[in-house]
């Protein structure tokens, strides 16, 4: 028997598996459009709510969504967190703000970065707009939008977050 100090209790055994991932028909359509700089959601034929990014169904009604709805790149902070730990393989330096954002005309939030702001001044209901990467860097990816930044519009009352028309605050 080996010394207990020398006892091996584990070995490194990396597993590499390669997948050809497909996002789905609806997400693929979304990604095709975002490559052109367009934010495209889908409307549920039953409850009329607009989903972005779309997944091909309305999760509440369980029916396929097909009607495309073009949305502006303005939205509202539904909630947020200030992250103090680095994300692996990501150049963003903590602390940074991750927010649940709802685009005008959409009825559901998605997660993105919030920047060009004092972290301590970020608040629920705050108005924001996308800051895009240079056009030549656009790909089939959500991070064509580098981050969102606050804009000079009055906050949205909490009860109206997720219910604004595509025309936004003034609609």
């Amino acid at each position: 028997m080996a010394d207990t100090a020398d006892t091996i209790t584990g070995i490194e055994c990396p597993v590499y598996l390669q997948y050809h991932f497909t996002a789905g028909r609806a997400p693929a359509r979304f990604l095709t459009r975002i490559k052109e700089g367009v934010l495209s959601g889908q409307r549920c034929p039953r409850c009329s709510n607009v989903y972005i990014p779309p997944r091909g169904s309305c999760p509440a009604c369980g029916v396929p969504t097909e009607e495309e709805v073009e949305l502006p790149d303005k939205g509202t902070v539904q909630s947020f967190t200030v992250v103090a730990i680095p994300i692996p393989n990501n150049p963003i330096k903590p602390p940074f703000v991750v927010a649940n954002l709802v685009l005008d005309g959409a009825n559901i939030s998605f997660i993105h970065l919030l920047s060009e702001c004092e972290n301590s001044e970020v608040r629920i209901g705050q108005r924001v707009q996308a800051v895009w990467k240079p056009r030549e860097e656009w790909g089939y990816a959500m991070d064509n939008i580098r981050y969102f930044r606050p804009i000079d519009e009055p906050d949205v009352p909490v009860a109206q977050i997720g219910k604004l028309p595509v025309t936004g605050r003034e609609g």
């Binding site: 991932f21 996002a23 994300i87 970065l113 990816a141």
Partner: peptide
Amino acid sequence: QPFSVHLNAGAGGYFAP
């Protein structure tokens, strides 16, 4: 996965907001 931003700040990042 391509359709979300890579902000995998863990479960805490999801639940904090």
